[in-house]
Design a protein around this nucleic acid. Structure first.
Lengths: 338, 338
DNA sequence: CCACGCTGTGTAATCGCTTTCATTTGCAGG
DNA sequence: CCTGCAAATGAAAGCGATTACACAGCGTGG
C-alpha cells in the first residue's frame, strides 16, 4: 500500500540525478532555471512529498521538539502546550506532544521514546520527584527545559511560576476574608503544589490571629476536592465556623465549591474559596473563582524559545526563570477592605 | 553535541556484528543466550537508545499516527484526543497531535507535514469544506479516518456523532420549555454545526405553535455568544419575551448564559439555554448546562481503532459510524413535563 | 589557441538500522 | 573421527534523503 514516491522516481522522470532534485527542493542556487522548473513541475504533477524520515537520518536533525505533560485534557497543560506550539511552529519545528496521565513511571518511558525518536530537544512539565527523566536526558545529551517546576541544579534550564509567592498571595487574600479556620488542600506531591501550600501556610502563620489551620494532602482533582469537603460537612466542620479554603489548583477549588453549594453552604458568605492557575473556566464556573494566575501561555513560549535557542546555538545556555504569579479576585473569595 | 551512540558502537564494544545487536534488540530467537546477555549489558551500561528514525526508514513504517484537530486548548477536542491516544498507545503507536487553530489553510499544510513525516495513518477532526486534506491523503494512499464529521464518499471512513439527531433532541427539549421565541446560534460553517442547526430547526418547525425562530450564523466561541446576546438585550429582544436559545456548542452556550446573568436575566426562568457536546465543564458552569452529549472519548477510540486495523490489515476497510447523541438535562433548560 | 574559472550536473559515500543470504560454529550420530 | 544439520553469526544490500567531490561544458583573458 501507501507506496510513496521517492526522490529517485522524480529524478528519473525528470532525466536528472537525485542530487539535482535535492538541490531544487532545497532551493540551492546552483541549478539552471530551466531544470528547476522541469523538476518542480514533475514534483507537483506527481504530488511528491519528500520523506522527512530520510532527511532526518541524513541531516542528524529531526526538527522536532518533544513535550511531556501530565494530562492532555487538562486546560492548564493545554494552554501551556499552546504557547509551546506557537513558538515551536514559528521556528520551523514540529511539536510531539505526549502525556503521562500523572503516571510517574510512564513519564520516563515517554522521555525515552522521545529520545529514541531523536527529537532535537525536550520540554517537560512538572517532573516527578521519582522520575529519572532528567538524568536520562542529561546522559544522552539531549537539550531540555523544565516547565512549571524548577531545579537547584545550575545546569538545568527551567521556566516556572514562583509557587511559594503564589501561595503567599492566596494566603494574604484569605487573611483579609475574616474567617475563623483555614483549610489547605494540596494536590499530588509535586514540587509546585507543595510550594503553593508552603507559601500559603507561611502567609497564614505570619499573622497568628488564633485561627486553626488544617492541611489535607493528596487532593489532586475535582472529585477529590468534592469528596473531602463533603466529608467535612458531614462531620459538621464547615457549617458552624466561617472557613477559608485554599485549593492548590482550580479543579480542586471547583470541586470544593460544588460540594459547598450542593450542601447549601454559601460561597463566599459562609466559606471563602481560592484556587490556583486561573484556568479559562475559573471565570465561568458556578461561583466565579478567586484564584492565583499563572502566565501559562507565556511559560510555554519562553520555555520553547529557550530550548530552541539552546539547540540552535549548540551550547546548553542555561535559562532559569521564575514567573511572577498574580492574584485574580472574583467572587469565591472577596477580601474585606480595611 | 548530542552525539548519540549507534548500533555500530555497541556492536564493536560487544565484539559482535550490528546484525547480532539488532537481533538481540528485536528479541529474535536465534541468538545465543550468552551473547544476548553480553549485548544487553553493554546496551544498558552505555544507555544506548536505538534510533527510531533509522528503524523507520528501514522498515518503511513509523508506528506513528498523525492527528489533526482544530484547537489544542479546547476540551472537546482534547477529550477526543485522549480517546485516540489511549488506543494508539495500547497498540504500540505514537500519536503526533497537531492543531490548525481553525485555519482552513493550515489544515492542509498540517496534513502535508504529516505525510512527509510518513505517519502510518491520519485522523482528522472536522475537515473544513474548503480544505483539500482528504484529497491529498487519498492521492498519497495514506490511510485516514475522519472524526466528528462524515462523508458521502463510500470509500472514506469516519466516526462521527449524528448531529441532525442531536439538534433534534435539543429542539424537542426546548419545545417543552414553553417559550415564545427560538434562537439558534450556529458556529463556524462546519458540517457538524450546520447539521445541528438543521436538526434543531426541523424539530421546531415540525410543531408549529406560532413561535418565531431566528438563526444567527458565525457564532463559534464564548465571546461571540456573549456578544450576540448582549446585542439582543440592548435591543430589548430578550427581556420581554420568554426565549429558548440553542447554541451549537457548549462554549457559545456559556457565553450566552454569561451575558444573560450579567444583565440580570434569569436562566432558565426567563431564557432557556441548551448547548451541545457536554464538555466536562458544562456541569460546573454558572448555570449547569442542559446540553447534548457526544461520546467524545469513544469517538476517538473507535476512530483510532478503525484506522490502526486498516493500517495493519493492509486494506482500506471502510468503517462508517454515526454515534447516537444523548440529551443531558441540567438547569439551564428544564422541560416542563406534560 | 590554451589555460583558467565558473556554473551545472552526476557519482557515490553517508546517516543507523533491518534483513537476506552466506558462512561459520557446535553438536549429535554413524 | 568424520559427516551432516541446525543454530549462531557476519557481510552486505537496501531504505530515501544530503552533500562532498569530480567533472563536463563554456566563456574569457592573455
Amino acid at each position: 500500500m501507501a507506496q510513496h514516491l521517492t526522490m529517485n522516481d522524480i529524478a528519473q522522470m525528470a532525466n536528472v540525478s537525485v542530487a539535482t532534485v535535492s538541490r531544487v527542493l532545497a532551493d540551492s542556487p546552483n541549478v539552471r532555471a530551466q531544470t528547476r522548473e522541469r523538476v518542480l513541475e514533475i514534483v507537483k504533477a506527481n504530488r511528491y512529498e519528500p520523506s522527512y524520515i530520510a532527511r532526518s537520518l541524513s541531516a542528524q536533525k529531526t526538527h522536532t521538539i518533544g513535550v511531556v505533560i501530565d494530562d492532555i485534557a487538562n486546560p492548564f497543560f493545554m494552554e501551556l502546550a499552546k504557547g509551546v506550539e506557537s513558538v515551536v511552529r514559528d521556528r520551523g519545528y514540529t511539536m510531539l506532544l505526549t502525556s503521562s496521565n500523572w503516571d510517574w513511571h510512564k513519564e520516563s518511558v515517554l522521555v525515552r521514546t522521545l529520545v529514541r525518536n531523536r527529537v532535537d530537544g525536550v520540554l517537560i512539565a512538572a517532573v516527578h520527584p521519582e522520575s529519572d527523566s532528567t538524568e536520562l536526558l542529561k546522559n544522552t545529551e539531549v537539550p531540555f527545559v523544565l516547565m512549571n517546576c524548577w531545579s537547584s541544579d545550575e545546569t538545568v534550564s527551567y521556566v516556572s511560576g514562583d509557587s511559594v509567592a503564589g501561595g503567599r498571595l492566596a494566603g494574604e487574600c484569605l487573611l483579609k476574608a475574616n474567617v475563623q479556620q483555614y483549610l489547605c488542600l494540596v494536590g499530588v506531591p509535586h514540587q509546585s503544589s507543595e510550594e503553593r501550600a508552603q507559601g500559603f501556610i507561611e502567609a497564614i502563620n505570619a499573622v497568628d490571629k488564633g485561627e486553626s489551620l488544617h492541611v489535607y494532602r493528596d487532593v489532586p482533582g475535582f472529585d477529590d476536592g468534592y469528596r473531602i469537603v463533603t466529608g467535612l460537612i458531614a462531620r459538621h466542620r464547615l457549617d458552624a465556623v466561617k472557613t477559608g479554603i485554599f485549593a492548590s489548583n482550580d479543579f480542586v477549588a471547583m470541586g470544593v465549591v460544588g460540594s459547598l453549594l450542593d450542601h447549601s453552604i454559601a460561597v463566599p458568605e459562609q466559606v471563602s474559596v481560592i484556587g490556583y492557575d486561573n484556568i479559562a473556566f475559573a471565570e465561568q464556573c458556578r461561583i466565579p473563582l478567586t484564584t492565583v494566575n499563572q502566565p501559562k501561555k507565556t511559560m510555554g513560549e519562553l520555555a520553547a524559545a529557550a530550548l530552541i535557542t539552546s539547540i540552535e546555538s549548540g551550547n546548553p545556555g542555561c535559562e532559569q526563570l521564575l514567573l511572577r504569579p498574580r492574584l485574580v479576585v472574583r467572587r469565591s473569595c472577596q477580601p474585606l477592605t480595611g
